[in-house]
Design a protein around this nucleic acid. Sequence first.
DNA 1: ATGAAAGCGCTAACAG
DNA 2: CTGTTAGCGCTTTCAT
Lengths: 342, 342
Amino acid sequence: MTTRVKVGIRTVAAEAGVSTATVSQVYNNKGEVAEATRARVLAVGARLGYRPDRIGQALRSGRSRVIGVVVSYRDSAVWEQTYMPYYRSIIAGAAIEAVEHGYSISAAPSSPSGDLETQVPLDGVIVVDPVPHDAIVEQSLANGLAVVTDGGYETTDAAARLRSVRSDMAQSVPAMLDHLDAASGGGLRPALFIGPRHDSYTDDTIAAYRRWCSEHDVPEAISALAVGETPVDAAGRLLDGAGDRIDAVHCLNETYSSALLAAAAERGIRVPDELQVSVAGDARGVGVDPRISYLHLDPVHSGALCARTLIAMLEAREVHDVVESVTVVPAGVHVGGDVGAP
Amino acid sequence: MTTRVKVGIRTVAAEAGVSTATVSQVYNNKGEVAEATRARVLAVGARLGYRPDRIGQALRSGRSRVIGVVVSYRDSAVWEQTYMPYYRSIIAGAAIEAVEHGYSISAAPSSPSGDLETQVPLDGVIVVDPVPHDAIVEQSLANGLAVVTDGGYETTDAAARLRSVRSDMAQSVPAMLDHLDAASGGGLRPALFIGPRHDSYTDDTIAAYRRWCSEHDVPEAISALAVGETPVDAAGRLLDGAGDRIDAVHCLNETYSSALLAAAAERGIRVPDELQVSVAGDARGVGVDPRISYLHLDPVHSGALCARTLIAMLEAREVHDVVESVTVVPAGVHVGGDVGAP
DNA sequence: ATGAAAGCGCTAACAG
DNA sequence: CTGTTAGCGCTTTCAT
């Protein structure tokens, strides 16, 4: 093994016969450096295996290259089953994207008041499913952090360092309902099965559903999980209450669609013959049910997109809000069916 | 809003009428500081809202407080379905645990040669499912990183900064087979359905399975997914090849159990009446199938455990290898059934 | 028991 | 075009 002396900016400077300032300029593409010098410095740096120390850079620049993913801790089984799987995909997607750009990520638990309980200084945060006037978003902006929300966010402040990444429910929910309508031969009477939280994702879905109903002149049937109610009970309530007036249900997430299928089975309702079911969720996971149609959401991809958007902001690049398109995966189709070698 | 001057160690020192060195000592519980002084410094610090800057600390101490989770990029559908879900749970669990201790995490893609392609300096790494003599593990140790493996790891070097966290397959696989044996009224003939990779998790499972077979004097039937083969094809091969000589299959992961169920359905084999199926996986997820029995693995928890173990090493605390116990969740039992409010 | 001073590796003014 | 210099916020000898 070669002698492992720590090779810093000084080592390179000395070896290349220039000053540390010049080496710095070269590695940051800043200032005016003669082409010959630049080449020499780069050559020496490469030979010595020089990598600028991120910590030194961070100290100097005041930027930590750490981005936070805000998680709100909740200790219920619904959190475990519904939100946690989503968060972990976001975290993983963000982490994998971040590393490509030299960033790391930190989970950032938040207090109800909206400030982040984190020991590491963050350059920016990703906030998942914000509610209107979200305390975390507002606090973070006030603290000078860049913010990207996963889910739409309305702000009056045009100058805010804020962007959003959201799934195009306005487009995809009607597309799904059209699909179910066609599959049933027309005259579809769809219900909507949602949770108790009014985040942007829920609101976008509701709005799209309502619009479709109004355009097709069918009555709305929106059923929300009550606080304290189990999904299966809520699904049962939905079926018992509107069972004969509906022939399809779109569910906000996979916990609800599972509950609905269970409730339907208990009542001897056959899916999809008697009742079509659709859900927004991962159509490629192990738990996909061939009887139901998916609005294919890929939270890992969303996490990556959020991270990329945030990093672009941090590096002062031009960046806009992002709307992800969502595809309809009809029942019976397995996207991940062509599984190859590991 | 109060004037937001940056409060650093100097501010506190000045305000408390001591030197920065003393403040540092107080905040690190180092050296000898008079009780009165310590209290005064702490009071001033609290009043001013002083938080030691992690970056300054990192620069001085040479430790970044970033831990890497090694992920091997693989671009196949099996990676997407099997490994990726596991990795993302590990990443999320590690991230959530890490933040409690003031650490962040970084995904660390690795090249085949075993060195980590990461721009941030890491204090340690978590390596998931190492193979024997794993290049990444060895390289990382050689580079002075602390290492925790998720999955057992054998090393000759007793002094190595290496610990492992693994699930107790030696205990739980026989427990599962005993359970299936009892459910079938005795005389169980179980097969084992594994992948092409020989990591410690696979090897532990095989060993436990073999021991059970030998103790119960039944023939072994181990079926491995070939490289390039789809899980459903492999499952079909298993059933066609040994269908009448077995009455149960334990699957290494949920991709394989799904494939097996699909293959069984195609052949009109009823589960669990004609064929019992068990799998090592998350018994609480949305995709749980009530027909199969689970060895309940919680990768989020494992990730947290790995992070905790690694951080303990980094902070020079005494720490041992960890063996997680795994519980048998019989078919038909829904662990997450009692779902409450979100 | 406390303080002064020397940097950790890097970047940004400014001077040459 | 390139070098000198002054720190970023902190920890750590070594004096006092």
